[in-house]
């Protein structure tokens, strides 16, 4: 057996795993995954941030654990094993939220549980963790989580400011505007508002990366 050359922990290749999903290959904007929760929890900034953190934690550990077990998981039942691992992690996150941030947990309600079915988590496990070593898998998980998080945090911030006139629960619309007849934009509170913003973000992302689909 020949020893493989040891790769530094933060080699260029590994950092690319983490940076790529942020903009170039964003899971929401490019792969269009995880849209469901991106619409559902982003009416305000705070739940968006909590959701972003939860998803990142889940992807990170699910990638790590699945990658560690990848040589022991029988191929024919791999999906169910992956799901079990992801579900365990999600339940952990859910319980922690219930214990330490009960209000938030109530607000996010079913969507924390639905992280199990989030395509990004499953997709990274299938596409990356099953074929790569634990450390790169974990970095990939963190990257994907951040890529998802950055989008929903931006969407959450925009929707909260325009829809409710607050940011992180604080009023920010100056009084004189309200006296002039300003009213909050009700569309932004509804899920279609998130669709519009995500659409615009996808456009912005394409403008930055200059990668367009041929059509």
């Amino acid at each position: 057996m020949t020893a493989e050359p040891k790769e530094p922990l933060f080699s260029k290749k590994n950092m690319k795993l983490m940076k790529d999903p942020l903009i170039d290959n964003n899971p929401v904007a490019v792969q269009v995954l995880g849209i469901c929760s991106a619409l559902a929890v982003t009416a305000q900034l705070k739940p968006s941030v909590i959701m972003a953190v939860s998803v990142t934690v889940v992807i990170m550990f699910s990638n790590l654990i699945i990658s560690m077990l990848r040589n022991f998981i029988p191929n024919s039942i791999r999906i169910i094993v992956e799901l079990t691992i992801i579900a365990t992690l999600v339940i952990l996150v859910d319980q922690i939220l219930k214990a330490y941030a009960f209000e938030m947990s109530k607000q996010l309600s079913v969507f924390v549980g639905l992280i199990i079915t989030n395509c990004i988590v499953m997709g990274r496990a299938e596409a990356f963790a099953m074929g790569n070593k634990p450390w790169p898998s974990m970095l990939d998980g963190i990257g994907s989580g951040f890529g998802y998080g950055i989008i929903i945090i931006i969407v959450g911030a925009i929707r909260e400011v325009t829809g409710a006139g607050t940011i992180w629960g604080k009023e920010i619309i100056p009084d004189f505007l309200i006296n002039l007849g300003y009213v909050n934009n009700g569309l932004m509170v509804l899920p279609p508002g998130a669709f519009v913003i995500i659409g615009l973000l996808v456009w912005l992302q394409r403008e930055i990366t200059k990668k367009y689909e041929a059509h």
Partner: peptide
């Protein structure tokens, strides 16, 4: 439709 959903009051 935008105005309808955004400014329902009006």
């Amino acid at each position: 439709a935008f105005c309808f959903f955004a400014f329902a009051q009006q």
